[in-house]
Simulated scan of single mutants.
Amino acid sequence: MKSQTIRRWSFIHTWSSLICTVFLLILCITGLPLVFHHEIEHMLGDAPELKEMPANTPRMDLQQLVKAAEAHRPGEVVQYFGWDEDEANGVYAFMGKTAGGDPNDTHTFMLDQRTGEAVETPSANGGFMMVMLRLHVDMYAGLPGKLLLAFMGLLFVLAIVSGVVLYSPFMRRLDFATVRPNKSNRVRWLDLHNLIGVVTLTWAFVVGLTGVLNACADLVIAQWRNDSLAAVVATYKDAPPLTERAPASRLLDIAQATVPGAEPSFIAFPGSRFSSEHHYAVFMKGDTHLTSHLLTPVLIDATDLKVTAIVSSPWYMDALLLSQPLHFGDYGGMPMKILWGVLDVLTIIVLGSGVYLWVVRRKAAATVKIAQTAEAA
């Protein structure tokens, strides 16, 4: 590789890395507890726990649960109901002042499907884990914060690519994984920086790309609403505002009959972000480990409970849904979470060593310049 090309790639690698380093450190530090959020919530006692009851205890229907949620939070409306694999008898209720309110203003709690009893979930409404999540997702800056992090993610990917280009000729001079112990601290850290960078290469690239996609989730969802969702509710454009809606009791039966073999993931109530002003949207998921992350929305008229359509899921929505669990290592249970945690710590070392190498190099260059000036005087 020509020296001019090396200098160009070195410039790209140095500055793309430095610009995104602070943000990447924040993302790595906050991402580490998020990988183990289930375990941390249980350790902190923030995970909701339902009462022990006989296995054959009947469950309330959805409309009864809606009433229970509204009684628990008077003056608010139900935006979503969501099901969690960890608690078979619980359903999460998401409530706000309005159906389409800011997601950050939503209050989340669990309802016992057998009794309608509300169980608070502190980690979903504040506390340590919510602080970590907000810092990781948008740094408390909303959409501008998400887009800034998306840009930093792109710089991180560029730093990875440029690092690979620079490391290729370096490998021709030394064997793989060589760390020269008899050299200076700078050289040893350079060798470790390159070694750890190569080891974490694929993981960092995948996490970087999925992070960019997740940071653009608001834009992806908005495109889905304006494209797929808008197409199937076009006939409701001039319909009068919904003043009274049919009870939610039969929603799951209707959705399961429409998409046989699927299970409910969550229900979006009329007026919420994932539905229309005139529909319930029941999002159904597959029964395999992969298809459980892909959702099929069944749109049900909120007046007469007739199925309006099964909303198509474009490739960009599928990509977003698949990228979210991959980003946090949710595909392979605890072994994969541990692997994700180790790789996260190694990435922090790569970022820190990169800053150290840049500082040392700048100091060395300044020392040489001073010496040259003194000789010329």
Rank of each mutant, 00 (worst) to 15 (best):
D84V: 02
F205D: 07
I300T: 00
L192G: 08
G286E: 02
C28W: 10
F328L: 14
L143N: 10
L27P: 06
T106N: 12
T21Q: 10
H107Y: 03
A231L: 12
K146H: 15
S312M: 13
K146F: 12
P314H: 13
A215G: 05
S17W: 05
G142R: 14
H279E: 11
W203T: 04
E76N: 12
T121E: 08
D102T: 00
I348G: 14
A88G: 02
Y140G: 04
I310A: 14
L27Y: 09
M336G: 09
A262E: 08
R173E: 11
T367I: 01
Y140P: 03
A374G: 09
C20K: 12
P74H: 07
T200E: 00
Y92L: 03
Q4G: 14
V131Q: 08
L294I: 01
L299Y: 06
H327E: 04
P74K: 11
K183W: 03
H278S: 07
G329D: 08
P48D: 12
L295F: 07
D86C: 07
T291R: 03
V157E: 07
H38L: 10
V259N: 02
R273N: 15
L294H: 03
R114C: 11
A55P: 08
S313Q: 15
P169Q: 01
P54G: 01
T288P: 03
L346A: 14
D287A: 13
M152R: 09
M95I: 01
L290A: 03
W224S: 14
R7H: 02
A371Y: 04
V198R: 10
G142F: 14
L290Y: 04
Q372L: 08
G286N: 08
A302C: 06
T210G: 05
S272F: 09
R361I: 13
R59L: 00
I267S: 09
S249D: 15
L305N: 13
L111A: 05
W189F: 14
V35I: 11
